[in-house]
């Protein structure tokens, strides 16, 4: 698939590193190369859409049907606290415990 990548939608190594940083991902050099290739392949695939003439076609905001998808303002039971905290790596005083936040 990577053969189809056009230069216009190419993603640079620096951009891969930036995205990794925003996503808090620590990557090895080999992973940066591999993911760059994958991302370029995905962008190339999506770029095929650009070949179509979409003049006058309204933007599709969402694949679902529009309509009333709201619920009424009513309470439903919350989780017991022990259950809410059960999958947290660390807890304390009924809270999720995280490394000290410096503001």
């Amino acid at each position: 698939m990577s053969d189809d990548v056009s230069n216009e939608v190419g993603i640079s190594r620096n951009e891969v590193l930036k995205i990794a940083k925003l996503g808090r991902l620590r990557l090895t050099d080999a992973e940066v190369d591999a993911l760059g290739k994958d991302l370029n392949a995905i962008l190339g695939y999506v770029a095929k859409m650009g070949e179509l003439d979409t003049t006058g076609v309204p933007t599709l905001e969402h694949a679902a049907e529009f309509g009333d998808t709201c619920r009424d303002d009513e309470n439903r039971p919350s989780l017991p606290r022990e259950e809410a905290l059960a999958s947290a790596p660390r807890t304390g005083d009924g809270c999720f415990a995280v490394p000290k936040i410096i503001e």
Binding site: E74, N75, R76, S78, L79, R81, A84, D93, G94, C95
Partner: peptide, 24 residues
């Protein structure tokens, strides 16, 4: 001033014990 949160049915009451008004 709603009774429930914006995307789930948990209560919005202020001042209850921490993490007593949460859901998945």
């Amino acid at each position: 001033s709603t009774r429930s949160k914006i995307f789930c049915g948990c209560s919005t009451t202020f001042g209850n014990p921490p993490n007593s008004q949460t859901c998945p």
